[in-house]
Design a protein around this nucleic acid. Structure first.
Lengths: 222, 222
DNA sequence: TCAAAAGTGTTGAAGATACACCCATGG
DNA sequence: CCATGGGTGTATCTTCAACACTTTTGA
């Protein structure tokens, strides 16, 4: 046992960036421009640098894809199958982030493409990234049920209907409008603003989250 | 950015081994016999080996401290502050395990001591292990609320009172005996055995978990 | 005036909580 | 016969779910 070699590994950080667009929950994927898995879709990620923490690396990766600062970002799981990367024993610390879709920049150059994919239509992915995405979706659902994480998918001000749609899309269940409103308002996380929505129809009262930081609820609410 | 050096790190695996003893939730700690932190209490842990996964390393560490096989063991979180280990950038993948107290062997040699500490009386620990323990306790509470994890703290057969005590100790709340029994039996996780408890008083019907593997409940039950 | 989304209360059912006494055993 | 833990049912309260119509606006 004393002579068994320690693993000496490089660390990558992969980020599952969720957003809601066109009424669907989507994930940002990029087409790989280097080996291994050249040309395959994969999660945005990269190596962790010397002296850096994994969450700093995650923020750095996020910053290259989006222009958001105080976004919901949480460590997901560490995947370390020794065979998961053909280059050798490379451990990945995965994160997931929630970002309003208008904050995501899709760079489309000749050699590199980013695209949003509905979580119901994920293509074959590089490495074990399909497993990571599945895990992230599961975690996201449970976060929505007992935290205020939805704040991170919405602009500062939003209508209750927009909020309700987020829950319906991610949890995959329709909510009763009156029950949803009563329940959410009673959670005490929101405050009314004096703004109203524009648009073709009756204007809606715009709400705002009192705190745009993660808050855990005592009870599962949805 | 291309010239920023990748972190090349060693990986340790630390395991928070929980048990219940004398009506208290306890954690197994060992006194370190090597630097750094020589002589300080710390979580059982060790380096991940080449070609090994972190959960294999966790099982290996667990096997040196206990004699259990199919125990509840779950990845907790990965801690990677570059300064967390004075030897350099060493990342730890933490796990937590639930073990019946009679399955834990406390080796006491001249140079090495293992002891169980109540989670309310954790001494100063090496590295960031206090943070890890705190995190593990929080996670354990929530696991108890919506999984059958309690199976892993009990022998095969047990009375409902013993089960109830586990919940009371870990959640820190007293349960009503009749309500607890009705609720737990309705979860459908248990089956009666035809064994009865021995002891000085009225014998209790012994139950058994139908499955001694992790099961997630749909709803938070406690 | 029409289409589309906003907004609003009540009732019934189900689930959760509170609560107290008798039973079986060993010493 | 006593001390100790085992075992059981009901009434109330709270919470959740189901349900439909009116209002406001822009086109």
């Amino acid at each position: 046992m004393k002579n068994t070699p320690k693993a000496i590994v490089e660390i990558t950080v992969d980020v599952v960036i969720f957003t809601i667009e066109d009424g669907e929950l989507k994930v940002l994927l990029g087409k790989r421009i280097i080996e291994p898995y050249l040309g395959k879709w994969s999660l945005p990620g990269g190596f962790m640098w010397k002296g850096e923490t994994s969450i700093e690396a995650a923020r750095r990766i996020l910053a290259t894809k989006t222009n958001v600062a105080d976004v919901y970002l949480e460590q997901l799981y560490t995947f370390d199958e020794p065979t998961r990367d053909p280059r050798g024993q490379i451990v990945t610390i995965s994160y997931f982030a929630l970002v309003p879709s208008n904050m995501i920049g899709l760079k489309q150059t000749e050699e590199y493409k980013s695209e949003l994919f509905s979580v119901t239509k994920i293509p074959a992915l590089a490495f074990d990234h399909e497993k990571i995405v599945k895990y992230a979706v599961k975690r996201l659902r449970s976060k929505l049920e007992y935290t205020n994480a939805a704040y991170s998918l919405l602009p500062n001000k939003f209508s209750l209907t927009e909020l309700q749609k987020i829950y319906e899309i991610i949890l995959g269940t329709l909510q009763d409008k009156r029950n949803f409103r009563r329940k959410y308002i009673n959670l005490g996380l929101l405050e009314k603003t004096d703004a109203m929505s524009g648009g073709k129809h009756r204007p809606a009262v715009m709400y705002r989250f009192k705190k745009r930081q993660p808050i855990e609820l005592q009870e599962k609410a949805f």
